[in-house]
Write a protein that binds this DNA or RNA. Structure first.
Lengths: 229, 229
DNA sequence: AATATAGCGTGTATATTTTACACTAAGTAA
DNA sequence: TTACTTAGTGTAAAATATACACGCTATATT
């Protein structure tokens, strides 16, 4: 490798806004920092990008270290590069959002050195965040608000089998407004990408709802990559 | 500044997809490289981010050096970080698109060291590009295709005073499809953000069209930041 | 002066999509 | 058996999107 690139004290990191949906609430994963700067503050999970890692790989690794999970749905959405966003030097941070299914077990691995513990926090009740993480979070939330209208990302927040009411809840909590039940169902079913599983919800103390799953194959066939939910 | 950040041979750069609209064609600005690697290749204008610069500042500087213009409309849209995208080391590149008015004078400054000259090229007829710039361009084009449907960015490509036909041309060339004239006008005018200037086009050899301008103030009042063009 | 040319500017009818709205059905628990 | 809770369903009205063609006007040409 020829050494001709100018260099200075700088590096890049990834920060992740990890969304989860649970009991009707939209939550994100926060860590309590165990290191300076911002020791003991709440922060978004993040880390320095490794030498041999692409950005996507790095984001996946960070999330895996934190949760033990892999194959999580993630998308890069913005890069934050203000000169003084990190008190110790020039750190440009590439932000990702992740969407994951909280299937009952909300267990998150306690983690290594830089964080004491990770917790799920309702997005409507966040503590003060380290660095410019408040801004990163807000932009991430905006992003999924916009994207949920055109792409099938809501399903990433639900278990494989879900009811229409659960799906509607996801939309309502992300868009932050009530939707009409009949209109929602009519429209959602009209896309033809939900597969009726002929199966009912289990263990509820009222009339059980029909379970559906998202038919990825059919979605890909019908729409290249675009839809209007 | 405390020295605790891990470091390795890496840096970040900005690459710009500079769109211009001229004689019914959508063009971008390409440079012919004067330096290794990819000497003599065509490439997107770009440069290393300076120590004291935010990303937005850096993007604005690069464009200014290239065109002599400032206050250009620019938006960051994606960050490219594959490990081997740059043959000489790890360079993460933050991509911006810029939109600018080619008001007749398409003159672009001949430029300094790293490029011989900059040229406007029709997006439908691009040469092979250096690095991963083809990919960066494609993603940028996709981005404005999407954004033109919801945000008033078309006006950035037109002179202050423009005709409805010119505006329609911008939409057609970006969306890459014909639009119905009457429907386009009806809808566009219905938003109430175009100001009829009571003025006609000059110097055309046929019936002159009415000139309009985009009423930013009114737009901001009516729509926070959103619309559906 | 007459004519040709080229793009300007306009309206209506139909189809599609979106919205608003309330009750019965089914299952569980007491 | 009754009370409770959520599931599941249809229609009419309004708004929006689409399809479609011709006379007008300024200039250029002869």
């Amino acid at each position: 490798m020829i050494e001709v690139l100018p260099k200075f004290d700088s590096t890049f990191s990834i920060d992740c806004v990890v969304f989860g949906f649970d009991e009707g609430e939209l939550k994100i994963l926060l860590i309590e920092r165990n290191e300076e700067p911002f020791k003991d503050w709440w922060a978004l999970p993040g880390n320095i990008v490794g030498e041999g890692e692409s950005l996507d790989q790095s984001a996946a690794r960070i999330l895996n270290e934190l949760t033990g999970l892999s194959n999580i749905y993630m998308e890069q959405y913005y890069t934050f590069g203000d000169v003084n966003r990190h008190p110790q030097g020039r750190v440009v941070s590439i932000a990702y959002y992740a969407l994951l299914r909280l299937g009952g077990e909300k267990a998150v691995k306690p983690i290594s050195t830089y964080a004491k513990q990770a917790y799920w926090r309702n997005v409507k009740d966040l503590p003060k965040l380290a660095f410019d993480h408040q801004q990163i979070f807000e932009k991430g939330l905006e992003k999924i608000k916009r994207r949920i209208k055109h792409q099938p990302i809501a399903f990433e927040l639900l278990p494989e089998k879900f009811t229409l009411t659960q799906l509607q809840n996801v939309y309502e909590v992300i868009l932050n407004k009530k939707l009409d039940k009949r209109n929602f169902r009519k429209k959602m079913l009209s896309f033809g990408v939900l597969k009726d599983l002929d199966e009912k919800q289990q263990g509820v103390s009222f009339r059980a709802a029909t379970l559906y799953k998202f038919d990825k194959r059919r979605y890909a066939k019908l729409f290249g990559k675009e839809i209007s939910f």
